[in-house]
Design a protein around this nucleic acid. Structure first.
Length: 414
DNA sequence: ATCCAGGGGA
DNA sequence: TCCCCTGGAT
């Protein structure tokens, strides 16, 4: 299919030279994973940093990257590490499936190196590594191997939709295709690594989501969005639907010794492979997050009214069994031993001290403590271990220091 | 307080 | 197409 671009050839052809000139004096050249100033790039470093940067901003990644490099200076070190060690290093970064893919990918890479003597050298070779998709593979090719590679990540999409006034919904595959075609058309065969880095720097420092610094932009002369004063109308993205809300008790089950029961979560689903308190699912409410129940609130912050009528739209409540195997075992055991906590009141929404928002729902967590005697502690441990659940009894400080805990668990402990 | 970004896998 | 998680912007 013939590809049509909204920009003329003259603009398409000068895009890269203008961008690269800007990058020379205005781009970032000191990020610890950059390989553009060496002739012997290290693909491990670029792979590791790109996987981290897939989901997280540079400033957040910096300390995590440093710690990974210190503990796992080579891909062999990472491949040989225990999952729990990797998880503990990743804890707090979010999207934990990526940590699992990173660990799995390290093992795949070591196998390939043992077989061929080197890292993969092709785009397809990198895309075959777990956790590496088209854009990350392009980045590694261009910046980690100094070969030809094209990236089309969120930064690139923002720059290109503005420059070429592409108004298709970027979550649609047709628009994705169009943007990839444009990125390929613009990427120079030589110095695609510098081009990739320059595009990311443009998106991060100049062509930002809000308040883009168009006056400093090397592309402003022919930027179609800028010509119309409509920079922030791009990229176009479908409206998100309201998130459901979910309520859970977070059980702090103490032993006589003062330790707390921790469970390792299954690989699929939220916080896969990380450690968590047992969570007791209470209910899920569809619809909007502004749902309120009547009831008194703790000291109102700024004189806002504290009694709000029930929002009628919230009345369809969806009760679902959302328990892991471990949590079912614990719930049944608690019921059998008459340790069941009182049913959570319908004021949970306003009273729950911890709110954690995820992509597709809001999660309200209510910490709840109980203490078991020695016999009960042994009994519940045995029941969980019999079902092959990984459990550990640790006090709060030890858990934070040694386990991979998601942020929400840190909030509960605080 | 709420909204939003971000790439890959199932 | 939906699901991951957290921090930063507003």
């Amino acid at each position: 299919m013939p590809t049509h671009f909204s920009q003329p050839d003259s603009s398409l052809n000068t895009f890269a030279p203008r961008l690269l000139t800007w990058f020379e004096t205005n781009g970032r050249h000191d990020l610890p994973w950059q390989q553009h100033q060496t002739d012997t790039p290290n693909p491990y470093i670029v792979w590791l940093s790109e996987v981290m940067l897939q989901q997280t901003q540079v400033t957040t990644v910096l300390p995590y990257f440093a710690r990974f490099m210190k503990s796992f200076p080579t891909v062999q070190d990472l491949a040989a590490a225990d999952w729990d060690t990797v998880a503990e290093h990743w804890a707090g970064l979010g999207y934990y499936a990526r940590a699992r893919n990173l660990h799995k990918g390290a093992k795949q890479l070591v196998d390939i190196i043992n077989e061929t003597g080197e890292f993969p050298q092709t785009l397809a070779g990198w895309e075959a590594i777990s956790g590496v998709g088209p854009s990350t593979a392009g980045a590694i090719m261009a910046m980690g191997l100094h070969r030809y590679g094209v990236i089309c990540d969120g930064n690139v999409k923002r720059v290109l939709t503005r420059w070429a006034a592409i108004d298709g919904d970027i979550t649609k595959s047709a628009t994705t295709k169009e943007l990839w075609a444009l990125a390929e058309r613009l990427t120079p065969r030589e110095s695609s690594g510098l081009f990739a880095q320059a595009m990311m720097d443009m998106g991060a420092t100049l062509c930002t989501r809000s308040k883009p610094a168009c006056l400093l932009c090397p592309l402003q002369d022919d930027c179609l969005a800028h010509a119309q004063g409509r920079e922030t109308d791009y990229p176009v993205k479908a409206k998100k639907q309201p998130k459901p809300s979910k309520f859970s008790n977070a059980l702090l089950i103490h032993s006589i010794e003062g330790d707390i029961l921790w469970l390792q979560r299954p690989d699929n689903g939220i916080w896969g492979g990380l450690w968590s308190l047992p969570l007791q699912f209470v209910e899920k409410i569809n619809g909007n997050a502004s749902v309120k129940t009547t009831g008194k609130k703790q000291a109102a912050n700024n004189g806002k009214q504290s009694n709000v009528p029930i929002d009628v739209r919230s009345n369809e409540k969806v009760y679902e069994a959302e328990f892991t195997t471990a949590e079912q075992i614990i719930n049944e055991w608690l019921a059998k031993n008459n340790l069941v906590t009182e049913t959570v009141s319908n004021s949970l929404l306003t009273d729950a001290p911890i709110k954690h928002s995820l992509t597709h729902f809001h999660w309200y967590l209510q910490p709840h403590s109980l203490t078991l005697d020695a016999k009960q502690t042994a009994e519940i441990s045995k029941a969980l271990q019999a079902a092959d659940i990984n459990i550990i009894w640790l006090n709060a400080d030890e858990a934070q220091a040694t386990l991979g805990l998601p942020r929400a668990m840190i909030k509960v402990l605080e």
